[in-house]
Write a protein that binds this DNA or RNA. Structure first.
Lengths: 241, 241
DNA sequence: ATGAAAACATGATAAATATCATAGTTTATA
DNA sequence: TATAAACTATGATATTTATCATGTTTTCAT
């Protein structure tokens, strides 16, 4: 009997079926404001998934009809610009909720979401969570606060895009990655991006991103091993202009 | 007696004391979801103001502690970037609510608001409206929808800033102004901005904005009389790349 | 109305960035 | 483990944008 329970728990863990009410990452987002009963109800209808690097969660123009809770991994939110280039609008990380906008509007998604590395996510259908929005003032206030924060960040990104040089923006990205993700054992950035991803994050040509990273390397700000990047002089990067 | 009533009404109108529940512009924002009783209560504590062109409503770093309802006129939301240049993050127009973020966070304002022309605004203290957020689900849902929309727009601006050329962005701004504001009797854009404002909207040097506007003029897309700009070839502007 | 200040305009030049070309490296996988 | 495909790197050059300089026009307060 004990063996069976153990085996069951193990299986649940292996296929990612941790219950919402026990899940650690809910601490980091608006779900923390839900009552235990509601979390249990939501847990019953959520879908857990593992997503491989490079897989698409959803595309621009699709209906989402729910929120994704990022349990592990990183994904990039991309928009294809009129001139055919991809722009990474933001990175979504462990603990973040993805698709809040779909809860309050019926619009199609404005962005495409693609996994940057192995991800573990839970999908909660809109229908299941919509009631909480109208009945639980704390939850909707929390949601408002999240959006307000995202809006402030977006405004700052606009200013940076408009006013800073490509080199500054690239330095900013490195600083951001360094502070947002734990470095690995060897001191490399915790997220591995392609040079093209870097270019699409700062809005420049891939060659330009490569060139500037090479320059950073020559000047001793970073070192690289293949795609992996190690920050050697964080304060120096912050001073770049 | 009739004369006194008439005189009173007239005075109220002249000093801008239209009551919220009768105010047309509330249709355009989240206030439309409040009950009549709540609007009357709010009306009782709101402050009405006329703001002259160039005046500052609030500055980056200040506490706002309430929302402004824009009854008439336009203001620009500015952020000073690290390199000392102003960036206009967005224009706020008749019907918009300004400062929603202050309702759900205690942070200082991230932006500075300056009147672009003569404005008429009402200020509603945070204390008075906070209760409505927790008690009126429609109101807070409306607020969420507003923010979701702003977020989508901000994401699009990020992509444009990162991927489009200065010329394209400037053409976009002209198209935006043309569609957002009614042109005056002579067909000029309904909002008059300085060349520096145009530069700060698209994130370029003032000389560059001037140069490109001159070019648009030569190429027959627009005509100008002093600061005033008339769109001659809207479709042409949309096609610029 | 008038003079000073602000805004507009444009040339010359420098700096930043994109594009095209080519080659070396890494990565994935058959 | 061989091989193609994808990614990284760098040079040469073109294009875009910023900066500095200077003159003109408009605006505004007296």
């Amino acid at each position: 009997m004990i063996f069976i329970m153990f085996s069951l728990t193990l299986t649940l863990i292996v296929i990612g079926m941790i219950k919402c009410e026990q899940c650690i990452v809910k601490q980091f987002n608006a779900l923390k404001s839900l009552e235990k009963d509601d979390l249990i109800r939501i847990s019953g209808c959520k879908t857990s998934k593992f997503i491989k690097k490079g897989e698409t969660l959803f595309r621009e123009g699709e209906s989402i009809n729910g929120v994704y809770c990022i349990k592990e991994g990183v994904c990039k939110l991309i928009k294809l610009s009129a001139n055919g280039k991809d722009q990474i609008v933001k990175l979504v990380v462990r603990g973040d909720l993805l698709g809040q906008r779909s809860l309050v509007t019926d619009e199609k998604s404005n962005l495409t979401a693609i996994a940057v590395n192995e991800m573990e996510i839970c999908f909660i259908p809109k229908s299941e969570i919509l009631n909480d929005l109208s009945k639980n003032a704390n939850f909707s206030l929390d949601m408002l606060q999240d959006m307000a924060k995202e809006l402030r960040i977006a405004d700052n990104v606009i200013v940076d895009m408009a006013q800073k040089s490509v080199k500054q923006r690239l330095a900013d990205v490195l600083v951001y990655l360094n502070t947002t993700f734990d470095n690995d054992e060897k001191g490399y950035l915790g997220v591995t991006l392609s040079r093209e991803d870097y270019a699409n994050l700062v809005g420049t040509a891939t060659e330009s991103a490569i060139r500037i990273l090479s320059q950073f390397k020559k000047e001793g700000y970073i070192s690289t091993t293949g795609k992996q990047i190690k920050i050697l002089d964080l304060e120096g990067l912050k001073r770049i202009e």
